[in-house]
Amino acid sequence: MKLHTVCLFLNLAAFWLLNSGHNTLLILLLGLASILLVLVISHKMDVVDHESQPLYLTRNIFSYYLWLTKEIIKANIVVVKHIWLGNQSISPTLRTIKISQKTDMGKVIYANSITLTPGTVAIDIIDDEVVVHALLKQDIESLLAGEMDRRVSQLER
């Protein structure tokens, strides 16, 4: 709880400093006051916990981001190719896929990664199944192969 508060304070302070760019005393004091106000309000709302500040992810998340960026670039090239090839080349598919993540955070990361990659959109999550619409049949097959699922599960623990 203490650690999450400190982390939220640092995030808000960085956001204020990067957005304002003024270093006079008055502006800095106003910034400090508004950060404290936000901290008080978020403590009253009881939202400062491991869900809003997932610190335990920090260890592995950067390598995952790197891998996800590579995947996004590859998927973008495929989708742009099929945009210019026309309607005959696409094969829209709707399927439910099993997900193996236990925690809510893992499920959210997995579904969000599916949506962030062009060509696949996660439509709904029912218990431990996610409904995916894909532009191409290959995309669904590569999701079923489970590379992304494995990496998100690795992130979880």
Binding site: I72, I73, N76, V79, V80, I83, W84, G86, N87, I90, P92, T115, L116, T117, P118, G119, T120, V121, H133, L135
Partner: peptide, 29 residues
């Protein structure tokens, strides 16, 4: 180039769900 091709895909694809993928291109990369 990516933004223009996303716009073309938005006009060209047959139904709502496929158009969403075209918008995804312009939104991410």
């Amino acid at each position: 180039f990516l933004c223009i091709s996303g716009g073309v895909g938005l006009l060209r694809f047959p139904d709502f769900y496929t158009r969403m993928h075209a918008v995804g291109v312009t939104d991410t990369l």
